[in-house]
Design a protein around this nucleic acid. Structure first.
Length: 581
DNA sequence: TGCGGCTATTG
DNA sequence: CACAATAGCCGCAG
């Protein structure tokens, strides 16, 4: 194959960075250091085959602009094995969420942040930024060194030569990013994290494409138990809704009208039954359960209404394909601490509906979740030897309870309270004992808290920038300014732990993903501290052992001093709900 | 039509 | 009801 030979001729070795730009319709562009950019178009009969072969033969680390490149590759029938994702690394370096090529380029080149046009639609020939029209030629880079704002979206620039130029830009940025990552003071893990964050982007593209297996008839049965059978007509749906409402409204005084979807009305309705509440949240009403049938019926109505509006038949129809796969969009790192997010309720599926997530015939799920990940991560990032010692126990809270001289439940609340920034209530007493038992961990959290309060940016252990400034408290009274400072403090305190946990989780997921490559097993869900794998039945036990081993590998990479132990619960199951939650 | 408030679900 | 997220409905401002 031509491409593989060209890469070899350019001296590309396994793991070297090679720029990649893809367009499903028109071809691909590839750029390697020391070689002229290579455009793969009409002359290459099968672009996917050429890339697949080049990958197997040479095995570079493909530089992608974003997860969209991975999606395009999947569209061509090729799963990128490893990448350097410019958007993911950019987010690591400078925090936040937006990572357009123009911003990525400017950051990597030390240029001022470009003013990004707010575009509702992709650019066309008539919406070119005036600054782009500078006579610097047709390439991607403007005379002022910035990237042109209309690259590469315009369809007139998806020819192989333009894609090759685009791949060349990607390679150049990746080299600069790698230097910046390497130069981060006191963050030796950042290069490793950059690669696992890149892998997470690949995984996001794959999760979006493959979806989560759902037993649709079972899902319909579960939904029906809450809101009745699938309505056949609009009138049917209205009648079912009215019937649901009536189950609550029958408790209202005759001649009154209350709208159940308006909290103020619900409060009035409760008052009409002699019940005074400051708000109508379920946890508050739960305390009043049994005191009046209205409360019980209202709580049941809320549950059904939630299913009807968010996880009902419309949801099923919109997001579950004819192949029984539930598909949403995945993001590799959110704006705050860098956790993965997913749309269409993949992360908030109510426990009652989880029995509908069923492995396909001949397959099983391997469900694995990290145990007590946040306190273990706190022990690692802070370097607290006493807390690290507690991680040797399968149940970290047992030794912590002994260290604090309290019961397990109190110990757990205290530790979580410290990580979330709770300063009042039941945990306050135990918090003082935490200070005495784990001074290093507690001062780590306190320092993060102070950073948040004064608006000083932080980096997680893996190097992700958590942006905390600038603070705008114009027009705030002192009370409100203090309240916001405290909120920033709690946010910062938590971000250092949650963000580090997200890094470890993604590293684990990346190792698992690599080990599954070439097998018929696949990751189908990531849920902050939990992985769900879908594998052929006969491979279940092997995959279960593999995820445990993969955790060992990820932990050794992320926390190389080995002082902290990480544990995972693993089960081979047919339904997501089969394992304990 | 966009946005903040309220509510629900999850880790 | 601490920390984070997505998502839906309501009322209100523009």
């Amino acid at each position: 194959m031509v491409l593989a030979e060209q890469l070899r001729a350019a001296g590309v070795r396994r793991g070297d960075l090679v720029g990649l730009a893809l367009d499903q319709m028109t071809g691909a562009g590839v750029a390697a250091a020391g070689a002229a950019p290579i455009g793969l178009g009409a002359e290459v009969a099968d672009v996917a085959a050429a890339l697949t072969h080049a990958d197997a033969d040479v095995g570079p680390r493909w530089v992608t602009w974003s997860a969209a490149t991975a999606s395009a590759a999947l569209g061509l029938g090729w799963e990128i094995p490893r990448s350097w994702d410019l958007a993911a690394v950019h987010r690591l370096l400078v925090g936040g969420w937006r990572a357009e090529p123009q911003q990525i380029w400017a950051t990597a080149h030390g240029l001022p942040a470009p003013v990004l046009a707010q575009r509702a639609a992709p650019p066309d020939l008539f919406s070119i930024d005036a600054a782009d029209d500078d006579g610097a030629g047709a390439g991607p880079v403007r005379a002022d060194g910035q990237l042109r704002s209309d690259w590469p979206a315009g369809s007139w620039r998806r020819d192989p030569a333009s894609l090759a130029a685009w791949a060349g830009c990607a390679l150049e940025v990746a080299v600069r990013q790698a230097e910046m990552i390497e130069a981060l003071p006191d963050r030796p893990l950042a290069s490793t994290v950059a690669r696992s964050e890149s892998a997470a982007e690949l995984l996001c593209a794959e999760l979006g494409a493959r979806g989560l297996p759902v037993d649709v008839p079972e899902a319909e049965r579960l939904i029906a138990a809450f809101v009745g059978p699938r309505p056949r007509t609009e009138a049917d749906a209205d009648a079912a809704r009215a019937a649901r409402d009536e189950s609550v409204l029958r408790h209202a005084p005759p001649g009154t009208t209350y709208l159940l979807r308006n909290p103020a009305h619900v409060k009035s309705l409760l008052r009409s039954a002699g019940i005074e509440v400051t708000d109508t949240r379920a946890w508050r009403l739960e305390e009043l359960r049994g005191s009046h049938p209205l409360v019980d019926d209202l709580l049941e109505w809320r549950k059904a209404e939630r299913i009807a509006t968010t996880f009902g038949y419309a949801w099923l129809d919109a997001h579950v394909g004819p192949d029984g796969r539930l598909r949403g969009e995945w993001t590799g790192s959110d704006g705050a601490a860098g956790r993965m997010t997913a749309t269409v309720g993949l992360h908030t599926l109510p426990a009652e509906l989880r029995p509908a997530v069923v492995a396909e015939p001949g397959h099983v799920f391997v469900r694995a979740d990290l145990g007590q990940i946040e306190p273990r991560v706190l022990a690692a990032v802070s370097g607290d030897r006493a807390l690290a010692a507690a991680t040797r126990d399968d149940d970290l809270y047992a030794p912590v309870a002994r260290d604090l001289g309290v019961d397990r439940a109190t110990a757990k609340v205290a530790v979580l309270g410290a990580m979330y920034g709770q300063t009042t209530g039941h945990g306050a007493q135990a918090l003082r004992r935490l200070d005495a038992a784990y001074p290093v961990a507690m001062s780590y959290l306190r320092e993060a808290d102070v950073s948040g309060q004064v608006g000083r940016d932080l980096r997680t252990r893996g190097g992700r920038l958590v942006r905390l400034g600038p603070i705008d408290e114009a027009g705030l009274d002192e009370r409100e300014a203090r309240r916001r400072a405290a909120a920033r403090g709690r946010y910062a305190r938590n971000a250092t732990v949650q963000g580090a946990a997200a890094e470890l989780f993604k590293m684990w997921a990346a190792v698992v993903r690599t080990r599954l490559a070439g097998t018929r097993g696949e990751i189908v869900l990531c849920l902050h501290d939990e992985l769900l794998l879908h594998v052929p039945s006969q491979a279940g036990a092997e995959a279960a052992a593999m995820v445990v081993d993969a955790l060992g590998e990820a932990a050794a990479r992320w926390a190389p001093d080995r002082s902290v132990r990480f544990v995972a619960d693993v089960a081979v199951i047919d339904r997501w709900s089969d394992a304990k939650g």
